[in-house]
Amino acid sequence: MAGLVLAIAIILAALFGPLLWRVSPIAINHALLGDPQPPSLVHPLGTDMLGRDELSRALYGARISLLIGFTAMIIAITFGTVYGAISGAAGGWLDSVMMRTVDAMLSFPSFFLIITVEALTNSFELGMMILIIGLLSWMGVARLVRAEVMSLRERDFIEAARAIGAGPTRILLRHLIPNALAPVVVAATLAIGDNILIAAGLSFLGLGVQVPTPSWGGMLQDALSPAVQNSPWLIVTPGILIVLTLLAFSLLGEGLRVALDQSIVQVGVAGVDVEPVANAATA
């Protein structure tokens, strides 16, 4: 419940915050250049090294974070679901080859892989970043869906569908996948948070959202500049935002898991079983 409230609050802040707090996140205030201001009434979260308003940057950063979190999640979930369903439904050698590939992709620090791909492709566009995050984080979902499909495959209603003449594609799309979606919903929720964490890490390394577009990771990177050494608010704000967002989505995921009656003991650790990529960024 707390997770839901927090998640909604963050989403609302990202959607409407910039409309209410109409200060430009990128306008440089020359009077304050090189002299970051602590939080005040004019700038509730202070200003950064270039005199830019931190609150405004935080709100626009929330938009970017959520945009990345959701879209990369959709890519990963779609791909992972289809992949896992095909693998589970096909069985045999195709299944082993497909799962071996998943094992391989799970076996190396995907965060390092993402950095490598980002840097080598030399492409820092938002769309590219979302695509890369999405395409490198579907493996957990694929495993989940495969396991579900394999147990569903043997059930009577599938047999019944086959008996009345449904083809393999129809069985996959209309019967297997819809029934395997419960754990996917939980994984999707957790993935949003994980993606946000990865994106923040990339932006922190200068490989993500590029300046001057505000992002939480970028704000943290700016806060490391020697020019702003005595400005703790610059370090604290983006970090707390990331922690709160992650907290919101992991609590929400945990809540959904209980609500959807997933076996709590078996898989029941938020974010643990579902491939902790983000915490590769961070754990």
Partner: peptide
């Protein structure tokens, strides 16, 4: 769990 490792390090 939600704490970015780089942020904690900086703190």
């Amino acid at each position: 769990y939600g704490m970015p490792v780089f942020w904690l390090g900086i703190l």
